[in-house]
């Protein structure tokens, strides 16, 4: 790195810093702005007179008597029962992460340790499955799920999300497992373990960082999903993201966009916390697949 930056001219350095500042503004400002605006009334956040009103909260002051208001949050969480969706999202993401990791560690481990040709084919099939737009699969689910009477339940969405995430999960875990020398399982087996004991007692303890990283990405996939949850869940079982989407339909008309804005901010907070604590894992996870090129 020093080799690359050695003898950088001040001009180059200035250009780099300017560019980065611009990018940071692009990357972070929308979130700051929306967080700020969520405590205003609609007349300020979408001001007809001057967008500066959103900064000072002119209308907010006039309508509520204070420059900040929690009205949007009250409307979303209490009036429109956003808390139900939060609980649903918690259930769905929790189960998806645990089941995905259980299935994925077993499968990824087997794939990383097998030299047979079919292991390669399974990985290729997973790659093709990974490429498939989720919504194409949904059009396959919907009719059978209606017929079987399993449409609309959280458990259905969980199982589908687990399956849709499997290709990604086993690829990622496979590449993590491959970084663990085979000597380790082999000594465990010679020392008296069955394959499964070697996996549980020796490999998994070493794999924790990889499992956590993959878990984070499973979490993100489940948490951020819109297609599956929007199509497969009934109204009362909706998770946060489809709930917000349905806010958009109804609130725009009633002048309650601030409900949606508050809900959006609420749904963003967990993601912020996640990045804050697991930045290193996320970076290592993004590069894990790439290292093998």
């Amino acid at each position: 790195m020093s080799v690359l930056t050695a003898k950088t001219s001040p001009w180059m350095r200035g250009a780099a810093i300017g560019f980065i500042t611009l990018w940071l503004l692009m990357a972070a400002f929308p979130f700051v702005w929306t967080l700020w605006g969520s405590f205003k009334v609609q007349g300020d956040f979408f001001s007809r007179q001057d967008w500066l009103n959103a900064l000072y909260g002119v209308q907010t002051l006039a309508e509520t008597g204070s420059s900040f208001t929690g009205r949007g949050y009250y409307g979303a969480w209490v009036e429109r029962e956003f808390w139900r969706s939060v609980i649903n999202t918690g259930i769905v993401t929790g189960f998806v992460v645990v089941i995905s990791l259980t299935f994925g560690t077993l499968g990824g481990y087997a794939l990383s340790r097998s030299t047979a040709r079919y292991a390669f084919w399974i990985l290729i099939a997973a790659l093709i499955f990974r490429a498939m737009p989720h919504i194409t699969l949904l059009s396959g689910y919907l009719l059978p799920f209606f017929q079987l009477g399993v449409w609309g339940y959280l458990s259905t969405a969980i199982i589908v999300l687990v399956a849709i995430n499997q290709p990604f999960t086993i690829w990622m875990l496979n590449s993590f497992f491959q970084t663990i020398p085979k000597d380790l399982d082999e000594s465990a087996m010679v020392d008296g373990c069955s394959r499964f004991q070697a996996f549980r007692l020796v490999i998994i303890p070493v794999m924790w960082p990889g499992v956590i990283t993959t878990g984070l990405f499973s979490f993100l996939l489940a948490y951020n999903d819109f297609a599956v949850t929007a199509v497969l869940l009934s109204q009362e079982n909706q998770t946060m993201v489809p709930k917000i989407a349905s806010f958009m339909g109804s609130t725009q008309v009633q002048g309650n966009v601030m409900f949606a804005v508050s809900a959006v901010v609420s749904a963003t907070v967990p993601l912020f916390i996640l990045v804050l604590f697991f930045q290193r894992h996320i970076v290592s996870g993004l590069t894990a697949g790439a290292v093998k090129g």
């Binding site: 000597d183 380790l184 082999e186 000594s187 010679v190």
Partner: peptide, 19 residues
């Protein structure tokens, strides 16, 4: 299975359990 053969093995890279 290896575990049923009553053997012990020393590996080239030792295969110690890092945890």
């Amino acid at each position: 299975e290896p575990k049923d053969r009553d053997i012990a093995m020393v590996f080239q890279s030792y295969g110690l359990y890092p945890t």
